[in-house]
């Protein structure tokens, strides 16, 4: 029990959080410089799970990947400290909510919402890159069919339309080059046929699966080979967590900014002082007080 209490206090220490944040800053900064010299090593992460990448690339190229592995550990520790600090703060805030009024209560809760959003984003990223299906290199020609692995779904590319820039296009050197690519996917499953439009930056979602155009053919006019797309097939359980995290984070941030401004316009104080004094002091076993300047 003492060990748990001591660990909780240690993880709830503000200095530790700050050290972790700046250590992550240093790791990512150094890592971005290393990445410039080894782009393909990290580009492989788009095609495979984190654990596959660690085994195939990470562990075998430690000179270039040490920072990334270190950053993963630091992110895990930061998630722990954020959880501990956030819990302490939430307990203190709930206790102080009585008699606060709705707006002041929301202001006190907004940092907790921001931190919760951050944790969900991290969790979503972890789930997305460790679990689920991520298949690249699925070539689908028009009227061709592929079966979605691990399911009874079949996908047919009913049609593919590639628009090209005409002569005298506004964009120099782009005459005859593609300017858009749109297709119609026909998804066949036990429920029947379902047609969906797919395009660049416009994926198709269907029953937890998502389909993206990674590349397409033809890239110029006048070719006679059958058009096709290079499709990415994903089943990503982490995406909903990330969306939830992003929404919470954004809401918490907007709430905090607007309410801080509201309180301080009404009182004639600078919003900054309240922002700074209401960000939680993550010290265990101490009640949170808003310091008045």
């Amino acid at each position: 029990m003492n060990f748990i209490r001591t660990s909780w206090r240690f993880l709830g220490n503000a200095s530790l959080s700050l050290w972790l944040i700046y250590a992550l800053f240093a790791e990512f900064l150094i890592g971005s410089i290393i990445m410039r010299h080894h782009p393909s090593l990290f580009h492989a992460l788009k095609d495979m799970t984190l654990q596959q990448w660690v085994v195939l690339y990470g562990a075998n190229s430690l000179r270039a990947t040490w920072w990334f592995l270190g950053a993963l550990i630091l992110l895990f520790l930061l998630a722990l400290t954020t959880t501990v600090c956030g819990t302490d703060k939430l307990i203190a805030t709930i206790g102080a909510l009585r008699g606060s009024g709705l707006w002041r209560g929301l202001l006190k809760l907004s940092p907790s919402i921001i931190h919760l959003g951050f944790l969900l984003l991290l969790l979503g990223q972890l789930v997305s890159h460790t679990v689920g299906i991520n298949l690249h290199g699925n070539i689908l020609a028009t009227s061709g069919t592929i079966t979605v692995p691990g399911s009874r779904m079949k996908i047919t590319l009913k049609e593919l339309k590639v628009d090209f820039f005409g002569k005298g296009a506004r964009f120099l050197g782009m005459d005859g080059s593609p300017r858009d690519c749109t297709g119609v996917l026909s998804i066949i499953d036990a429920q029947g046929h379902h047609d969906r439009v797919i395009s660049i930056n416009r994926p198709v979602w269907y029953k937890g699966w998502s389909f993206f155009i990674e590349d397409f053919y033809p890239k110029s006019r006048g070719v006679t080979r059958s058009p096709f797309i290079n499709m990415v097939i994903r089943k990503d359980p982490g995406i909903r967590l990330m969306m939830g995290g992003a929404i919470l984070f954004g809401l918490g941030l907007i709430m905090h900014l607007l309410l801080v401004t509201r309180f301080h316009i009404n009182r004639g104080h600078s919003p900054v002082n309240v922002f700074i004094t209401t960000v939680p002091s993550p010290v265990s076993h101490k009640r949170h007080h808003i310091r008045q300047e």
Partner: peptide
């Protein structure tokens, strides 16, 4: 995510 099927762009 919409363009590359991944929220992270694996570049510097």
């Amino acid at each position: 995510y919409m363009g590359r099927s991944d929220v992270i762009s694996w570049n510097h």
